[in-house]
Design a protein around this nucleic acid. Sequence first.
DNA 1: GAGTGGTCTAGACCACCAA
DNA 2: TGGTGGTCTAGACCACTCA
Lengths: 244, 244
Amino acid sequence: MPDTKSSPVFQPLYRQIKALITQSLIVGKWSPGNPIPSEMELAAQFGVSQGTVRKAIDELAAENILNRRQGKGTFVSTHSEDGVKLRFLRLVAADGSKQLLDNRLLSCERSKAPAQVAQQLGIKTGSSIIEIKRLLLLADKPTILDHIILPAASFKGVNTALIESFNGSMYRMYESQLGIRMVRAEERLNAIGADAATASILGIKTHTPLLRIERVSYTYGDKPMEWRLGMCLTNEHHYLNHLE
Amino acid sequence: MPDTKSSPVFQPLYRQIKALITQSLIVGKWSPGNPIPSEMELAAQFGVSQGTVRKAIDELAAENILNRRQGKGTFVSTHSEDGVKLRFLRLVAADGSKQLLDNRLLSCERSKAPAQVAQQLGIKTGSSIIEIKRLLLLADKPTILDHIILPAASFKGVNTALIESFNGSMYRMYESQLGIRMVRAEERLNAIGADAATASILGIKTHTPLLRIERVSYTYGDKPMEWRLGMCLTNEHHYLNHLE
DNA sequence: GAGTGGTCTAGACCACCAA
DNA sequence: TGGTGGTCTAGACCACTCA
């Protein structure tokens, strides 16, 4: 039975268990969409009581990392069949109608990381990156111009064909092709006027107000893996946010 | 001992306890900043085990409605000394510097509820409201123009003097003067160009891109109590959001 | 019916706080 | 020192799923 207090920096047992489970997720022992062992099994493996494993899983479930289904088991969350297709997309139609989403890949090239992005991704300035530009259409109207930057070292094999085969669902692609699952993201929003290039792609006038969304996405263990800049036309859509 | 299953619509025991605690909060039995009875006391009162009360409090704490302090007790959360002054303000300086916040009340008048706002507040169109306009300055620069609407029936006695005595912290005022505590809010954001009136107050040119934030705030029991429209200059500030 | 997660209990001990 | 929340255990029973 593991001890409760004599760790280097004290962590409750259930957090140690949580860390062990997270570690198994990092090394890919269990993969997205599949079940992890039952609470009783894990309790036996780790030599703790079921209640302690339960509390560890509780936290992981609250963070949307695991997914409990009564009578069936506990599953590794996935972006594929999570109910919602695009878990991090907060844009909703202003009139509440459902969204028809379409995707046009504009480019996918290798490049060198600019300082500002490199810092946020925790990589060296100038290191190799993959740079993707795409246009999202909501209800057939050009609405979001995305600029995505990935560290090339972790995203080997990403190219136009691969992206298009996933029909624009990047997170699903990362997950099933690379085993990289994004668990959280941080966004910074502000309002700016469209520059000429953006305006022409979105089919609007220059200086039209746009919602600018800068996002950094993190995988297990709070590791930043994707940088993204979205320019959003918000005449007919709102960014919806719940505060607690 | 209360039964676990024969309720009209089944709710686990701990949710029934949670509802009882929430009810006590609604009727003001315990007030913001003060402790509620200990877990053992509540368990005895309700005739359940401490673990069950604990789980009820767990959820309320996760919703920021209660606040546990080890060794001291469980307290009703407050906007006054919650650590952060403005819990729902997501605007941060782009450079990460700390914010100096100043507040200028522009007007506070009685009026009639327009349909669109009335619907969101769950009151009748044309019913009596209090309409407040104010300007927030961040680092001495005019940054947010707020337009606040309150149902007059629930906010008796709100006037210029009262607002100014709280130095612009509306939620603190609602809480200590009216016993109304906001527990969550829903925001819809988009980008628009400043109209002439807004531009002149913020000291900017017309058509300058602004972040428009429409917020509805809710008190205990998901009752909408405040409607708010903020026009934000986001040249030097970002709206920061964490996604999970 | 067997196996899974979900709830509830009772009791032990720990960590923290205030008087 | 006594009271509070925090952790951990062991065991019971319930609700759901699937073969």
